[in-house]
Structures are given as structure tokens and as C-alpha cells.
Design a protein around this nucleic acid. Sequence first.
DNA 1: CTGTATCCTTAGGGATACTG
DNA 2: CAGTATCCCTAAGGATACAG
Lengths: 150, 150
Amino acid sequence: MNKRKQPARGSGKCPVTFALDIFGDKWSLIILRDIVFKGKRHYGEFLNSAEKISTNILASRLAKLESEAVIVKTRDTQNLSRFVYSLADKGRDLLPLLLDMIEWSVKYDPQPDASGPVISGAPDRLLERLHEDRDALIAEIITGMEERNQ
Amino acid sequence: MNKRKQPARGSGKCPVTFALDIFGDKWSLIILRDIVFKGKRHYGEFLNSAEKISTNILASRLAKLESEAVIVKTRDTQNLSRFVYSLADKGRDLLPLLLDMIEWSVKYDPQPDASGPVISGAPDRLLERLHEDRDALIAEIITGMEERNQ
DNA sequence: CTGTATCCTTAGGGATACTG
DNA sequence: CAGTATCCCTAAGGATACAG
């Protein structure tokens, strides 16, 4: 009897567990960060992120995130040999969480990168605006992201 | 030359990476959920969560979260043979993130648990209130948690 | 350059025994 | 019961070769 095999903890259970099963791994949120803040859309761009994800893991995460409908994979009309990865609604709705995460890290990282925006690629005054007009800020980031996808 | 050994990606870098290095594992947020919403404070209570964390992993996560100052470990004055685990400020400040996570899951889980609050132990109308008066709701949850710790 | 496939290592973590 | 220690296995993921 194989009692080792654990079922996925996901759907129908606790919302925290549900979320963790989808993006609670070492790389998924990094990829989303790259899409949202760095404007990345292509395989090679993700490969080049500072954290150096390896190609097999990248492929597997993109596939999983696509299968979970967090991102969408479409053929690049400018270059048929590659795809464009962009956020689906389900991925866009992770932006508040991503912002909370950034805010928390900025508050507690003892060695912050002092210069420039709190996360490279993000609008200036990100955290201030997060409190002043949270929803507007989120809308603006999403709009900016979509404009790049034209 | 051992090029395999990866350094921790943490401090001084991207805020997303910083956060993931502290609580971006399979269990940390589950433990925080148990503290915040289920009122758990003792080792055995964490062991009994639905996700069945094993005892060695629990010990290792509690130690890491304590070393990162996310939680605080104090001796239980009622029973000197055990400890009480509670949130430090750094842990309390993860509550917004936890709430965003729950909101996201409730929106996208195809098989929600229909009855009762969105997460067992949480106040009713959690999500509505999250929009109406986010800060007040967060304050209330924290107050409720601290009262249990008296 | 965009990905896929293969091989291999290791950290995460499960089962369980054990100590106070 | 609270927590530690040990043993072992699996799955995440790193290096690299390869195909289109």
C-alpha cells in the first residue's frame, strides 16, 4: 500500500491551499512579476531574468500557468516561430497580491536597493499610490501592460 | 568547481524574490493561516491541520519563521512544557496578502465550499468588508487574534 | 532563437521512532 | 502531549543536449 502518494491539496478546500497549489512554487510569481513589471512576453526574456530559471522549469511553469488559465499563450504574429505569453484575467487578479508582497518586502528588507522605484519597471511612488488610490494604481499598471502588448 | 550550489536569492534584490525566500514554500502560509484565522497557537494544533504537515517539517518551518521574525515563540505560562507561537509585526503585516489570496481563490475556485465563511474561522462577509473598509477589517482580525492570546 | 527532452542532483518533506 | 532526530523517497529543478 502506497501511503506516500499525496493528493493535490487543491480545489474544494481551503482558499489558501487552493492558491498555493497554483502559484505557490519557487517560480510562478517571478514569471508573473516579469510579465507585469518588466514587460516580458517571450520565452527568451523570461530565461534572462536575474534569477536564472532553467529552460525546462520555465517551460513547465508556463505550461502549468497556461493550463490553470493564469496566463494565455498566443502565437506571435510578428514571428510565427514563437509565442507571446500574457496575463489572463485570472493572472491580472493576482496583481493586488503581488503589490502587497512588494510592499511587505520593502518594509522589511534590511538591504533594499536604495535608488529608483521599489521594483524595477514599476511606476514611481508605487507604495504611496497603493495607499492613496489602490484600485486606480492597479488599473494603471494593467493598462500599461496591455499597451505594450499591442 | 561546484556550479550547482545556488545561493539564496534573498535580501538586496527584487522584493518578490525577497518575500518568496521567506514564506514562499509549501507550508509557511498555511501556518500563518492557522494562527490568524483558526486561532492556533500550539505545536499540536498546527499538526492537526487538514493538510497534515509532518512534525519534522512543522518544526523546521516554525524555526525558520521565528528566525525571520515573522512569528514569536514564547513559553506558555499555563504549561511550561510547551510554547506559544504567535505573530510578530512582520507576520501581522502579511495579513493583507493573505486576504488577497483568499479573495482570489474564492473568485476562481470552481468547487468552493458553499456554506459558511469563505475560510473557516474568519469573520462573516469577509470579502465584502475587504472592499468596504479594508483597513478596519484587517485591524479587527488582528484584534480578535490578540484577544485569544490573553 | 524558441522551445523540448534527458539526465542527474538535491532539498523538501513524509513516516516513524524517540526523548522529556 | 510537545518537540527532536533519523531514515528514506519523491518531485522540483539544475545542466545540458538537441530539434525546429
